[in-house]
């Protein structure tokens, strides 16, 4: 049954009438995503593509169409507000594609979401896809194939690369989640691993991480304690020079963690199979099937 999105997901697109929004809405419709409404303030009453009704507010859209998920293409200065609007309507899932949202805006969003049932994916992410069923985002649909590997990643195109390596080997995916790489994100690697662990249709999880922070370590620690499904990982940034400090205070916070090597070692100790090369992600994953 996969996670987060399925054939039954009724999707609302916020920022539908913008350039990005309309282009990707067409792509999502082509993929078979159940897009039921769009929201652009001031454009209420229009029809997109001849059949998708556009509303001025998310509330109207939800009341008229029963939408239970949203994908956000609203420009950065207004994107956080769009997420808040969708969350206030009690949607199950919000996928925020927008890049460049101020950190402080995301802190507000995180607080607003606390104690609510709404799950946020992103921002600054490619979105989420259950191959063959529902695509909520900007990833190329055709590289995916239905199957039983769950994919979670901080990156965009690197995820496509990894998924493509799986599909080329005939290894399908249950759901692929791009969680985004901003300082404050709605869903973390750890959250995604929990979801995949509870999903009877996922057998293996592929986690694509990057240097910096401790999100991958936290997820791996959980996997070691609670998961009986194998986890395969790739960490990008082994060659990134540790130059250009952000500032003293920042370095103290991150406590010296976050080099690719320390991360890889931590993951291995937690029982995660780590691919050494980005060209070998598919190959390594095939070994645990």
């Amino acid at each position: 049954m996969s996670i987060l999105v399925s054939k039954d997901t009724k999707v609302l697109v916020q920022g539908l009438t913008g350039g990005e929004g309309s282009f990707h809405t067409r792509q999502m419709l082509e993929y078979g995503t159940g897009i039921v409404a769009g929201v652009t303030p001031g454009r209420g009453g229009e029809k997109f593509n001849g059949n998708v009704p556009v509303f001025n507010t998310a509330e109207e859209a939800v009341n008229s169409t029963g939408a239970n998920a949203s994908v956000v293409f609203v420009p950065a200065p207004f994107a956080a507000d769009a997420v808040l609007e969708a969350a206030a309507c009690g949607l199950d899932l919000i996928v925020c594609i927008t890049e460049g949202i101020p950190t402080l805006d995301m802190v507000r969003v995180k607080q607003f979401l606390q104690g609510r049932e709404t799950r946020l994916i992103g921002p600054n992410c490619p979105g989420v896809i259950t191959p063959g069923a529902c695509k909520l985002g900007i990833m190329p649909g055709f590289i995916h194939q239905p199957g039983r590997v769950g994919v979670v990643s901080r990156s965009g195109t690197l995820t496509y690369e990894a998924v493509w390596q799986l599909t080329e080997r005939g290894i399908g995916q249950s759901t692929c989640i791009g969680i985004g790489g901003d300082p404050v994100v709605g869903t973390t690697h750890l959250d995604a691993l929990k979801l995949f662990n509870d999903d009877p249709d996922t057998d293996v999880v592929l986690m694509i991480g990057e240097i910096g922070g401790t999100a991958e370590e936290e997820a791996a620690a959980y996997a070691k304690e609670h998961m009986d499904k194998p986890v395969v990982a790739f960490i990008a940034g082994r060659t990134a020079p540790p130059g250009r400090r952000m500032g003293h205070a920042g370095a103290i916070i991150s406590g010296g963690v976050g080099t690719a090597q320390s991360k890889i070692e931590f993951l291995r100790r937690a029982g995660v199979t780590v691919a050494e090369s980005p060209a070998e992600i598919g190959q390594v994953l095939a070994t645990v099937l």
Binding site: D182, P183, E210, G212, G237, A240, P241, R244, R245, G258
Partner: peptide, 11 residues
């Protein structure tokens, strides 16, 4: 030391 990556991801 923070890394190059963090600068990109976090602005």
């Amino acid at each position: 030391m923070l890394c190059i990556r963090e600068l990109f991801r976090w602005g």
